[in-house]
Amino acid sequence: MKRPLASITLLISALSLLSGTAYAADPNLGRNLAATCAACHGTDGKTAGINANLAGVPKDTLVQTLKAFKSGEKPATVMNQLAKGYDDAQIEAIAGYLAAQRK
């Protein structure tokens, strides 16, 4: 059975196609957006320090964590402020790219 989240994602993708936004147009959107995480979390999310490793983390976990940072539900030093700079579709794209990276 399909989970509601996946259906919503499909719907968003379909809408993006219709409206012709970058989300559908740029096949490297996830890669480009996830690259904005790399200065603190390492290239492709492979961390070299105490900041969390993001490479190969399941997509759902990343999406939930980023949304919890965004809402303030999960406290942090910087991430509450940074997560607010990304919309839900961008968070999906980032999480999808990082989840596909090898740890």
Partner: peptide, 16 residues
């Protein structure tokens, strides 16, 4: 703790 994150930032951005 932000001191620790600053160190991690430096390590990661140098590697990146």
């Amino acid at each position: 703790i932000e001191g620790k994150f600053a160190e991690a930032w430096a390590k990661n951005i140098w590697a990146d």
